[in-house]
Design a protein around this nucleic acid. Sequence first.
DNA 1: TATGAATGAGAATTCATTCAT
DNA 2: TATGAATGAATTCTCATTCAT
Lengths: 190, 190, 190, 190
Amino acid sequence: MSDKRTQLIEATVDLFSKEGFWNTSTARISKHAQVATGTLFNYFPSKEALIDAVYLQLKKEVRDFVLEAYPERGELRERMDHIWDHYAMWAVANPVRYRLLEQLRLSDLVSQAAIDKMEEELAFMFEVVGEAHKQGLYGKLPFGFVSMIIHAHLETTINYAIAQGLSGRKLKNHLKLGAETLWQGIGAKG
Amino acid sequence: MSDKRTQLIEATVDLFSKEGFWNTSTARISKHAQVATGTLFNYFPSKEALIDAVYLQLKKEVRDFVLEAYPERGELRERMDHIWDHYAMWAVANPVRYRLLEQLRLSDLVSQAAIDKMEEELAFMFEVVGEAHKQGLYGKLPFGFVSMIIHAHLETTINYAIAQGLSGRKLKNHLKLGAETLWQGIGAKG
Amino acid sequence: MSDKRTQLIEATVDLFSKEGFWNTSTARISKHAQVATGTLFNYFPSKEALIDAVYLQLKKEVRDFVLEAYPERGELRERMDHIWDHYAMWAVANPVRYRLLEQLRLSDLVSQAAIDKMEEELAFMFEVVGEAHKQGLYGKLPFGFVSMIIHAHLETTINYAIAQGLSGRKLKNHLKLGAETLWQGIGAKG
Amino acid sequence: MSDKRTQLIEATVDLFSKEGFWNTSTARISKHAQVATGTLFNYFPSKEALIDAVYLQLKKEVRDFVLEAYPERGELRERMDHIWDHYAMWAVANPVRYRLLEQLRLSDLVSQAAIDKMEEELAFMFEVVGEAHKQGLYGKLPFGFVSMIIHAHLETTINYAIAQGLSGRKLKNHLKLGAETLWQGIGAKG
DNA sequence: TATGAATGAGAATTCATTCAT
DNA sequence: TATGAATGAATTCTCATTCAT
């Protein structure tokens, strides 16, 4: 909430993106956030805690964007499309943040506690996949495999959109194409 | 060439896998390789150069495995299947090395020069994708997108196989299933 | 005077005893005393001043206890015994405070000014030793040496009593034994 | 053994004595020892280990001095006198080191492991006290109490000698006086 | 008077790299 | 070529103290 807290998180996002995790010292973060070195540690007990906070902040931004106008009581396919589109649109609109989130996920820098905490809050996303699986939408493919495929395919769709700088109608079409390819691959009837 | 060089690379692979990049100092690598700290710098001018060497070494191992019995003059589909199967089989047989390769790819630790150099040597893999695209196997999907999808899907197929500890017949079947899902998704007639 | 001042001194005694000087920050003291970090510095201009205050407080407690029912106009030996017994009894009754006092004395943390100030207030104790010396009670031993022996012996007597957890009659006897040993050693006629 | 190791220990002794433990950073020690900051940590894994090493070094110096010409098979009293005299003489000849040793003993800075290790090596000193006690030299006084008295009295004798700058014949006489006072006090027949 | 966020110098420790042997 | 002690800049984190509210 605090202004300084936000400054520190933003400075971290900025520097991590620009310089990588490993060239970014707490001293640099403090300076970039225009606060004293000690101030950082008033808000975060350690560098690790700061990184966790960055991770949670970014994840929350995605979640909030996805939950905006989320058709909670809509058809399964409607909800799936909503998540697919909004997740991707957030990523394309915030490529730096998206990239950082991906890197953090693979980096061992985020504590398991932070990951677990977020997983809970994003449960609704996993549930639609489970629901679809129960309905037999994925044919004979094992559930775990399908989950991984969906995730990877969404990532790929996003990465291509970012690489091509797609937006507006083109982006919409690309997302649709990505979704179709996926459903076609995993056996959904479209 | 030199025995020590190999020891150093192997020690690096080992420690990077076990402890992560960031907890692995050159001192530890030297000790693990049973050479003196100074010796490392006789073989590699810097830590970065060592990491590049590790990356190239692993990539070469994949390439060599894929090129073994490669049907250079075979049908397109035959070649594609060979690459798919062998790449995945190497990964499943060497999960530690595979994981490390993936991590290195995303880590900013490998120099662009090393990446470029390797890309050249792996050109034959990219070529089959291009060939397939020219033959219209992928329908309307843009070439860049297809390339990314293929890569991501192969990775996912591998990750699932490693996670499930598949081998033998089960692995074969899984790889086939992965391939089918892919071709079905991207519109190939199978 | 102020309640907060007392709280701060007591919190310091408590934490110094439990955690040692060097692990005890002013922040911890403030928290333990249930005041804000800034408040500490309203009462004491610096950490050193706080430590001085703690030292003086403890010393005053000893002095007050020793001066209680002090036979100011009694025989020399009576006064000596009174000091010996009361000093030791305070220490045994307040081992934590006694220990802290000893530690502070040897720690370089208390300013010379505070030490000098206290020495004045405890002058009456030194005087009895001087008086005894003048009366030739200590035989040929140099005055300075006798003073040091008395102090050390009293400390030892106390330390043993604390270590053994003596109290009541047993404590009385031990103190008497300690005193006898001392007088016998330094040549007093008993 | 190493020259640098010795330099570092000596620098530590020097600075600890002159400035106290708590104003003495590893950086200052390194500089005083004329080595780089990192070099200190080549020889000692942590500041605590360095302090342990200082403690052990000083203790060994005392022990070696006391063991010189020690009459291992002599009469009890002869051995007691030897220890008393040599211990005190070392202290008077090395007041700075002696002072530091005393401070370290009371400081919580030395690890229990180091203390235990040294205790073993100094066992012969404790044994003579036990032997004397068994022979009934100390009359009715409890053994633990006698031990403490002896230690305190030796310390006091040393402190006075240092304070007065005694040496040569005067020192000899003082030590004898100190010993006599002690034996007289604790009831030995002299 | 009381508060507690902000400060920034300073602490212990790490580590890639060098170089005399 | 191999060695490993030496280097010192850089890192994370602490803490006495200040000051605007």
